[in-house]
Write a protein that binds this DNA or RNA. Structure first.
Ligand SMILES: [Mn+2]
Ligand SMILES: [Mn+2]
Ligand SMILES: [Zn+2]
Ligand SMILES: [Zn+2]
Lengths: 169, 169
DNA sequence: GCACTTGTTGTGAGTGATTCATAATAAGGA
DNA sequence: TCCTTATTATGAATCACTCACAACAAGTGC
């Protein structure tokens, strides 16, 4: 038995979950394909567990995400994507051409982006309640999610054509 | 450009689209319910056009969004929401308890996350339609989207119960 | 090692949100 | 008013995901 890695199985156990081959396989797959969606993970896992169903992958992803072992992001217009990089609220740059996702470190560090405090009252459509200072419109903010949209290096060099929305193959 | 000053019919025409009662109704509905989803808009529009179908509302919303007359946001775990406030890339605070959405002025210069760690900062991401151009990890960034997650004032004062995830009915 | 309990997985059906295909309709110009 | 063509109406279909429940297996105790 390869006991070299103290992580996957132990982290699952530490979360109070049972260690199953499916969970190990999903974690292992994500090791090599960060920001993959459920379908891509399923295809990858199938190479070692040909009979695992997509639904089971969903269940595993949900359990691991709830346990805090995975992070799920849900970019607009894309199925949910999963990654093992957790604990830091890092952000993402997403290519509008091909959907590629790239990690972006937050400039602030580990408890980032929790002090938005817009200086001016909200001029929104009729909801200009000048909320208290320090939070946003009276909201108690716990997370700030930042998504940068643009063109990845590859798509910048393509003509204004339609690069196929390739996933991790 | 002053989209707010144009009559709905004029702005539709100016976009090169035909002025229809359905489009006027959808724009009118959103006047009073910013950040509504397709279903809520459909219910509202039905009060004046009882026979309009949800699918037609989707078509109208798509056309108006493509024309730049509406902005669509797609918060995680929520159906798409639409608003008439366009032209400024403002951000949103969303309540994890009840799903309420609140406009937040772009925090350029205040929220640290708009200045990513890698090379250049993002100029004009907020005040200019997100037309600014930055560079993150080789990406040519055109828009920075910020979502603040937390509890709205109402949900802060509720016990640990789960307020119904409903909104303007 | 063997059984037992219970968390997990496998399977199929079901759901919500949105899109597609196509016929019917109506907006806007001639 | 007529005509062309954009737009809407309708139903079916798709996508991503969830649910219900039976079959299974991880971890515990003997
Ligand atoms: Mn990431
Ligand atoms: Mn808004
Ligand atoms: Zn790309
Ligand atoms: Zn709330």
């Amino acid at each position: 038995m390869p006991t070299a890695t103290l992580e996957p199985a132990d982290s699952i156990r530490a979360a109070g979950l049972r260690v199953t081959t499916q969970r190990l396989a999903v974690l292992g797959a994500l090791e090599n394909m960060p920001h993959a969606d459920a379908d891509a993970i399923h295809r990858r896992v199938r190479s070692t567990q040909p009979d695992i169903s997509l639904q089971s992958v969903y269940v595993v992803l949900g359990a691991l995400t709830d346990a805090g072992l995975l992070r799920r992001i849900e970019p607009a217009g894309s199925p949910a994507r999963y990654e093992r990089r957790i604990g830091d609220n890092h952000h993402h740059a997403i290519c509008t051409g091909c959907g590629a996702v790239q990690d972006v470190d937050c400039a602030v560090g580990h408890a980032p982006c929790l002090t938005p405090a817009p200086p001016a009252p909200l001029p929104g459509t009729g909801t200009g309640t000048g909320a208290g200072t320090g939070d946003v419109a009276g909201f108690r903010i716990t997370t700030a999610e930042v998504t940068y949209w643009g063109l990845c290096p590859a798509c910048q060099h393509l003509p204004a054509s339609h690069p196929d929305k390739k996933e991790n193959a």
